[in-house]
Design a protein around this nucleic acid. Sequence first.
DNA 1: TATTGTTATACTCTATAACTATA
DNA 2: TATAGTTATAGAGTATAACAATA
Lengths: 164, 164
Amino acid sequence: MHSVSSPLPPPEAGSDSPSAPLDTRFLESLIGYNARRAALAIIGPVLQRLAPFELRVVDFSVLTVIAHNPGVTSRQVCAALDILPPNLVGLVRALEQRGLVEKRDHPRDRRAQGLYVTAVGAQVQARAQAAVGAVESSDLTHLDAHERATLIRLLRKIYLGPEA
Amino acid sequence: MHSVSSPLPPPEAGSDSPSAPLDTRFLESLIGYNARRAALAIIGPVLQRLAPFELRVVDFSVLTVIAHNPGVTSRQVCAALDILPPNLVGLVRALEQRGLVEKRDHPRDRRAQGLYVTAVGAQVQARAQAAVGAVESSDLTHLDAHERATLIRLLRKIYLGPEA
DNA sequence: TATTGTTATACTCTATAACTATA
DNA sequence: TATAGTTATAGAGTATAACAATA
């Protein structure tokens, strides 16, 4: 087949203006692109606030689900947070070794174990939750309360569907 | 110090109602949590649409920036897409070996190279862009045009600041 | 036969150090 | 001295297969 060749040299945006911003308009028109960038922009400050507690975002998420759902099983945590069972094992074990979480026999299913926060774990979770919550309502998001509510409603519509 | 112990046994949400949904209300109140889940919900359909072109999201992003900015340098692509230079090398090399992208000497900086799409690369990019764009405006997002515009405006405000 | 929790492992993604050629 | 592109490599994150104990 014939090769399609450009008869004229193309414009050279990169070399013509080395300091000019690139054209990324198409990517910026995509919800996925903007949602990912926004999530990454928020995660930085959240990481900072969680650092004093020696928790990453995933650790905080697991600890929070356990704190708010005493006796929850590993499989339930996996389903709620989209974590694969083999990958949860190490997360829970680390929280357990730090004395924040403990396992107890499940009352009606001897295969399963109920997960509980310890008294220390409950304190750490509550303080970490306050720190994380403070980021979201701070100026770091550049949004007022109404904008935040609108944003969350629209985001939930995307991953839960129109009926949510 | 005294240990803070619960005088009463805690409720057992996990074991009491095994099929009941967990309490994840706090996480659901966070912008970061919702933005990440929305981004993950969108990326699935996008991956499907890109699969026929044998492009992942990152490949499509790089190809698109090059197509829209002929002569762009590697460093500029890295800055625009938040990719570290060592990690871009393999991406560009793969696109180059598939005949979608080519490097040419930079006219004024012999250290740098200008990146260009080939004629085939331009065709592939244009068709992939149409496929990706169709996902966003489809029912898959559960949003109408006005909601989509509002959502993108609020997301941009988060990562660009209030003046954007 | 299906499910819970687990081990081992592989694969991808992201990050750091250091080198060369050039500015 | 600083920057563009590159190599090698380390680490985190995510994925599959398979097992013992129990339903």
